[in-house]
Nucleic acid binder design. Structure first.
Length: 423
RNA sequence: AGAGAGUUGGGUGAGUGGCUGAAACCAGCAGUUUGCUAAACUGUCGUACGGGUCAAACCGUACCGGGGGUUCGAAUCCCCCACUCUCUGCCA
């Protein structure tokens, strides 16, 4: 969430940012934040003064008791009684102000970076670049949901039988392609200096709040009520939360982690015709990269993460484009997001396969993820993450783009991982 | 799942209701000594909020798993919850 001081000191910039988010009454919201914060400060300050007085009287009482001056002590006790009533009032007032402030801050999205285009929807995203040839396919090309049946490599019906819609079963070369991609992505990340982690794929409530899935996107996650645990929608949640409540040394930055996990998304109410096949699933595999950086380095890092992801797509020989998301399409917690989309030749559509974002201090504020600077002061680090990559749409695109009458040709970089060169 | 024990600062670990934000030791940081290394010695060494300052120093308050209670006063007493460990059971 945003820092109150950040709002206070950059009121105009924050206001402009929230307008870019198409929020209806930002001025009103920010005024409310500041007045709640003022109330919080003044009531706590008064409480502290009263408490200081009470503490000092208590000490005197102790002294008086020791000296056997019982009457004096009793007199002092009655004075603290009055103070305590007032303290209670002030504490309630402070707690209320804090609670209201927090609830309000939870509803405010991150302030977009100045380079974020204005706009309302995906239509308004800016195409930064496009790379690779869009393949001209032969007559009779098939969308991937036909291809997987033809070659019997991914089975949706079987998934329905054992679980439900959106939980496909990968079989034979389909399963091996999944495994090859995961290993390829992990190896590439290792070579780029990331440390591999295998986090739990269920997380507690604190973790959900830490990265911003809660309270905003409660319905997105599967929830195991018996144990109060959420299935992760992305490895971003457990990996970033590794550093919750941590004070790093400046020389430890940047932290670079990569992890492969299955991801689970309920996607309630967003099922439709354009999400056939692998385009949208309840369970899918993803390799995620996460970085924790010095605030001065985060945008440089964002660019390098974007280049890194593009490098993967180039190695897989998939045509792609890079979008800079507009204010209306960007995630709640992000300050700047690049989406990478691959072209899926039979569907004749661009499919999002990666989203690389800089959250600045939005997450680290909630996480209390700080580092000790050279001046020995603690300050919030910046957090970033990106998919590198999400598997299903990569698979869809590989299958569709590389289909030939002789079978589906696998990208060269995967051959050593696959043990075969075509399906 | 049953029984028991426990949760204190970066770590180990003291702590009798007021003198404890918290002993001691280790690690860390700064310095002294010193051919080098090692060792020794001295000092320093939590976080947050508020005030204060150009910035510090400094001052107030809170925090000893979380929440509530008793008390003039709680790390210390009481209640609830969470978690950890040990034994038993189950199990990849």
């Amino acid at each position: 969430m945003l820092l109150v001081n950040q709002i206070r000191e950059n009121l105009d910039a924050v206001l402009a940012g929230l307008q870019k988010r198409n929020i209806s009454n930002p001025q009103e919201i920010l005024d409310q934040v500041l007045s709640l914060d003022d109330l919080r400060k003044s009531s706590q300050s008064e409480r502290d003064q009263m408490q200081a007085e009470a503490n000092s009287i208590s000490k005197q009482i102790g002294q008086l008791m020791k000296e056997g001056q019982k009457e004096e002590a009793e007199k002092a006790k009655s004075r603290t009684a009055e103070i305590k009533v007032r303290i209670k009032e002030l504490e309630d007032q402070t707690a209320k102000a804090e609670e209201d402030l927090k609830a309000l801050l939870y509803t405010i999205p991150n302030v977009p970076h100045t380079s974020v285009p204005t706009g309302k929807s995906a239509e308004d995203n800016e195409v930064v670049l496009q790379h690779g040839e869009i393949p001209a396919l032969f007559e009779g090309k098939l969308p991937h949901w036909e291809l997987i049946k033809k070659y019997d490599i991914i089975d949706f019906d079987l998934g329905v039988k054992i679980t439900g819609a959106g939980f496909p079963v990968y079989k034979g070369k389909g399963a091996r392609l999944q495994r090859a991609l995961i290993n390829f992505f992990l190896d590439e990340a290792l070579a780029a200096g990331y440390m591999e982690v295998q986090p739990p794929i269920m997380v507690n409530e604190d973790s959900g709040y830490g990265t911003g899935q809660l309270p905003d996107k409660e319905g997105q996650m599967y929830f195991a009520s018996a144990d109060n645990l959420y299935l992760i929608p992305t490895a971003e949640v457990p990996i970033t939360n590794l550093y919750r409540d941590v004070i790093l040394n400046e020389e430890d930055l940047p932290i670079k982690n990569v992890g492969y996990t299955p991801c689970f998304r309920r996607e309630a109410g967003s099922w439709g015709a354009h999400v056939r096949g692998l385009n949208r699933l309840h369970q899918f595999d993803k390799v995620e990269i996460v970085q924790i950086t010095h605030p001065d380095k985060s945008y440089e890092t964002l660019e390098s993460m974007s280049s890194y992801v593009q490098g993967l797509l180039q190695k897989l020989d998939l045509p792609y484009r890079v979008l800079r998301l507009c204010g209306g399409d960007m995630g709640f917690t992000s300050a700047l997001t690049y989406d990478m989309e691959v072209y899926s030749a039979a569907q004749e559509r661009w499919l999002e396969v990666s989203s690389v974002s800089n959250f600045e201090t939005y997450q680290t504020n909630r996480l209390k993820l700080r580092f000790r600077g050279e001046d020995k002061k603690n300050q919030l680090a910046h957090s970033l993450n990106g998919s590198a990559l999400a598997l299903p749409r990569i698979v869809a695109s590989i299958l569709e783009n590389n289909q030939t009458p002789e079978g589906i040709m696998m990208p060269k970089v995967l051959h050593p991982y696959l043990g075969f060169d075509r399906i």
